[in-house]
């Protein structure tokens, strides 16, 4: 359902917490703060100016040792849940494109503890999931060892990324 009215309300920034997801429509923007090894996945439809963001922590829901799972926490279930949410907002999945950021390694350790490599594993899992859903990855800012705060504007389809040392960068 297309909203033909040009909304005149001032734009809002919708905040997404860790292991959460949400969807916005122009002129609102969507933002998540302090991504470390987590990955922020933005899926958007540039024809409808609608975008969704999920802040994922872990690569795969098979890692869960709980009975009920929070879908937004994992790459595989989180991306699926976000696609479903975007469908409800009137988006056709074949129009979706993706931009992603995060997956850093905040601390360097010699330890071979698997959780230390979680950033790169999250990024790999997100990419696998995008391929599986035939969603093209348009841009990414991943890896490294800096925290990131990201904000996506569904009007311009630009993802702005802020780090402590490099300021703001748009992809």
């Amino acid at each position: 359902m297309l909203d033909k009215m040009i909304t005149s309300h001032t734009s809002q920034v919708i905040k997404v917490g860790i292991a959460q997801l949400d969807v916005v429509k122009m002129p609102d923007t969507i933002r998540t703060s302090g991504l470390g090894s987590c990955v922020g996945v933005v899926l958007y439809d540039e024809t409808k100016n609608i975008a969704g963001l999920v802040h994922i922590m872990l690569p795969d829901s098979s890692l869960a040792r709980t009975e009920t799972i929070n879908a937004a926490k994992f790459a595989n279930t989180g991306i699926k849940a976000l696609i479903d949410m975007l469908k409800l907002a009137g988006v056709q999945p074949f129009r979706l494109k993706a931009k992603i950021a995060g997956g850093a390694q905040m601390f360097k350790f010699s330890s071979d503890n698997d959780s230390m490599r979680i950033g790169p594993r999250n990024v790999e899992a997100v990419k696998r999931e995008l391929v599986k859903n035939s969603i093209p990855l348009i841009a990414e800012d991943t890896g490294g060892n800096s925290g990131r705060t990201i904000e996506f504007n569904p009007g311009t389809c630009l993802l702005s990324i802020r780090t402590v040392n490099q300021g703001v960068n748009e992809i």
């Binding site: 703060s33 302090g34 991504l35 470390g36 090894s37 987590c38 905040m106 601390f107 925290g147």
Partner: peptide, 14 residues
């Protein structure tokens, strides 16, 4: 690490 608190602390939440 000198960085955003969220990025630092989430390392311990994994």
């Amino acid at each position: 690490s000198v960085d955003m608190f969220g990025a630092i602390i989430s390392t311990g939440l994994i």
